[in-house]
Nucleic acid binder design. Structure first.
Lengths: 339, 339
DNA sequence: ATAGTTTGTCGAAGCGCTTCGACTCCGTCG
DNA sequence: CGACGGAGTCGAAGCGCTTCGACAAACTAT
């Protein structure tokens, strides 16, 4: 293993000079710099991460805590994780992958050991037990998600309330009056991750303003469960003509069941999904949808963190504006004669 | 930040004694151990990762290189990644998340800097350019996947050839004679990741022995593409009664299209999927499937790596035996009278 | 020309930990 | 009873890097 000292000797300079060439923290003459850089090349030198971390108290690692559960939005999680890793690299950071399993202990461990310089937390619950630790730690962190109390925290998330409102507006504009929300699995609501409730709140508030009637049904993924849910919805309110689906794994079943019942999309009923674009475009009907900006959230989180680490950052809550893309699953409400 | 020295002082012992309490590498009297452990508790001591890495030349980090592409099997990738992280923790290791983006450079960087003690590579191509580096490095590594030349490498993967064979056997046993394989997207074959070809090879070989005729069609996910693919298959060979699907995002479209064409599953056609159980059970028909043992692969990879790091490991190729679960999507070939 | 500033380089002091050899104290064996 | 070995502890020497202060040389401003 090649060390700094060997590079220094090979280039005929002192170790500190090599270090300064590497870090650029002091000016170095062009000649010296070139000699050092050549030596680094020739010897195939790579700075030792541990030594660097010890001497500088900076590991150049960002910890990313992903949920252990894989009961929802897996592709979104993955996309965020990859965006985080990619963005981090462009800023010279690596990413440490932590699972939610360890819970608050992971936060303590990472903060205490200096393993990472900063943390990104996904799947944040409304009253997450990791938050007190983050607040009292001097380590920068960013949450992807929105807890109940955001004081002293930085958060990035899609504006789910606005997402819900947007869906209501689109359906209202098309003349729908009775709509149903196919929500996440009950477990998601019980866990109080917040985003599902926020969507619903936003949708309900706007619906009231616009005179829409809303039926909300949590729903696990899968065909059978969806079948039961759907028939209950039509039993209870046969006049339902609009659906908002916030559960990837309910999308395909819903469309299949509607077709099976002879309800055409978008002629008889309209469907909006809150899901990644890929799901929206690969469904049997190209779905009008609000995309979940996974990449943007991951990128944003890292960049905020890097800014903080450079002493530039501030605590703030960033809610990304939702965008509704109209595709082929929504249309004007059917005229009564056609019903 | 609390240091070893402070713990030592607090406990009234030397620094080295504390170190030995922590590592267990030398015997310590029960009394001393307890005093040290109490001090650690009281002071809230966490060993500094950098210092540890520097002094011991061990980072206790395993690097995991995941594919950047998210065009296939995302949930499987995620499940593997989580299994890796979870298993690594039980052995005292953390996981560094690398994306395929950097390619071979990432291998050099990580190996050279001592950032990680070992590597796990996913999405290995048949003739992967990272392999020479791994062979010449003295760092242990495990591949999840199977390259063309495995000399000097350790690999873990599902036995996809056996998977293909298993599917053929099941369909043959039920009396099917003409079967079609809905493969991965063409890009997957062009990339030569191997698993798709291996499945096909295994299936073809066994099919020949059993007298099955096989039609293979690569297919991107999505409804529209699937519709075209399916109609071509039935045009070309109307007698097709069995399907093997190796593409998660083709499963739902295939089932929907079959139903739409009035072909009942499993009465008219049988469908086997190679996919995670969750996909198989959430489809409109509970699918007979061969599961992809994502967790097991991740766990296995880590455990092999840990064994190597402890000087116990060997280079070997582990192909996990596929298991076919019969559900409701396969049945006896329809009698000619019913056709 | 002289003082003051900037530029480029070096030496040395750690960063917090592991680990090796040395030492002491006991119990044990011949 | 002295030599021996194991158990338990300590001191000190690094691991490879960053960074601070010092210093010489080369400018700039008066």
């Amino acid at each position: 293993m090649v060390t700094l000292a060997e590079v220094a000797q090979h280039a005929g300079v002192s170790a500190s000079t090599v270090s300064y060439v590497l870090s650029g923290k002091r000016s170095i003459s062009a000649g010296t710099r070139q000699r050092v850089e050549r030596s680094i090349q020739e010897l195939g030198y790579h700075p030792n991460a541990g030594a660097r971390a010890l001497a500088s108290s900076r590991s150049n690692i960002i910890a990313l805590m992903v949920p252990l559960r894989t009961d929802m939005y897996v592709p979104v999680m993955m996309e965020i994780a990859i965006a985080v890793a990619t963005t981090a690299r462009t800023h010279g950071y690596d990413v440490l992958l932590l699972t939610g399993e360890e819970g608050p202990d992971a936060v303590r461990r990472v903060t205490g050991s200096g393993l990472a310089d900063a943390m990104i937390l996904m799947d944040v619950e409304l009253d997450d037990e990791r938050l007190p630790l983050l607040r009292q730690s001097d380590q920068p962190s960013v949450l992807i998600g929105l807890p109940a109390d955001t004081t002293g925290l930085t958060c990035v998330d899609l504006d789910f309330a606005a997402t819900g409102a947007l869906c209501a507006e689109h359906l209202a504009m098309l003349g729908h009056r009775d709509i149903a929300v196919i929500g996440e699995a009950p477990a998601v609501y019980e866990r109080h991750t917040g985003f599902a409730e926020r969507t619903l709140d936003g949708l309900r508030a706007r619906s009231q303003e616009l005179g829409l009637r809303v039926l909300h049904r949590p729903c696990e993924g899968g065909y059978d469960v969806m079948a039961v849910t759907l028939s209950r919805i039509f039993d209870e309110r046969p006049s339902t003509t609009g659906f908002v689906v916030q559960n990837e794994s309910a999308v395909a079943p819903l469309l299949a069941l509607l077709r099976q019942q002879g309800r055409a999309v978008p002629e008889d009923v309209s469907v909006i999904a809150v899901c990644p674009d890929q799901v929206a475009t690969q469904a049997s009907v190209r779905l009008t949808s609000v995309a979940i900006p996974a990449q943007e959230m991951g990128r944003h989180a890292v960049e905020h963190l890097v800014a903080k680490l450079d002493g530039r950052g501030t605590d703030e809550v960033v809610l990304l504006a939702p965008e509704l893309t109209v595709r082929a699953s929504t249309g004007p409400v059917p005229s009564p004669s056609a019903g």
